[in-house]
């Protein structure tokens, strides 16, 4: 099963900034992500990972190029794209005054999940993520680990085929981060296509089926770990990453 769920072609984004002038945040990025696959976007801070993922989630508009989610174009069918997408990042917060159950119901409805199945789906999520005893407690009263679980449940409550995790482990302690990684792996087992961005090498190494190395807005390489090792004749991902980033330092003068 290697159905392409996310397809990105020549995607570029230019910003204009008062102090820096024109900034090419993302330039000519191509990749695709299949069903049951975790594609890791690996890059330093400011490399363009978040901008790329936000373009796929239709929050930002591409300057040029296209991105498709299940064949829906992000520019012309943004609502269809978002309906098939779950977006999770450290900056996507929850409403503090809702309970976990209310949160899940709200996002199932807003994401147009079929009305007759909403209630059972919400209960299913509560059980799956172990929210049982806390389902009726307001989010503001939950621990950060519980909040994170509600957040993932919120991301997948409408059962989207594509999931985007934008630096999800930022700010989490080791145990919570491992929990999250486990949850993401389980979602892969469910057949989701998962885009996962990180700047942590070990995380990418452990979790991702394929790794796309992004540097200064450009895609430097995109392959599985073996492929990257073969191409660079280096073993550790850290060395591979440094190789790609440094070898492009000079020609980047266009």
């Amino acid at each position: 099963m290697s159905t392409v769920q996310v397809e990105v072609q020549g995607l570029s984004k230019n910003f204009f900034d008062q102090s820096r002038g024109e900034v090419n945040a993302v330039q000519q990025v191509d990749f695709e992500c299949r069903r049951g696959e975790i594609l890791g976007l690996l890059g330093a801070n400011g490399a363009g990972k978040t901008t790329t993922l936000r373009m796929i989630s239709t929050v930002l508009q591409p300057t040029s190029g296209t991105a498709r989610v299940l064949g829906h174009d992000v520019a012309s069918e943004p609502v269809e794209v978002r309906r098939n997408l779950g977006f999770y990042s450290a900056s996507t917060a929850l409403y503090p005054r809702l309970t976990a159950r209310e949160t899940l119901t709200l996002f199932a409805r807003v994401n147009k999940y079929p009305a007759e199945r909403t209630k059972s789906r919400v209960e299913e999520m509560i059980e799956r993520f172990g929210l049982g005893e806390y389902a009726g407690v307001r989010i503001e009263k939950l621990s950060s680990g519980m909040k994170q679980k509600v957040s993932i449940a919120r991301t997948v409550v409408h059962d989207p085929p594509v999931l985007i995790f934008d630096e999800p482990t930022v700010g989490l302690d080791v145990l919570n981060a491992l929990d999250l990684q486990k949850a993401i792996q389980e979602l892969r087992e469910d057949g989701k296509a998962i885009l996962f961005s990180t700047h942590i090498m070990s995380e990418a190494e452990r979790l991702c089926d394929r790794i796309a190395i992004i540097d200064k807005g450009r895609l430097r390489a995109c392959a599985d770990l073996e492929g990257l090792r073969a191409a660079t004749s280096r073993h550790y991902l850290e060395d591979i990453f440094v190789h790609y980033v440094t070898s492009h330092e000079t020609p980047d003068q266009d």
């Binding site: 609502v79 917060a93 929850l94 503090p96 807003v110 409408h158």
Partner: peptide, 14 residues
Amino acid sequence: ERGTLETLLTTAAS
């Protein structure tokens, strides 16, 4: 400010 807007904007709500 609370970060819920980005959550909302990435949902299927137009």
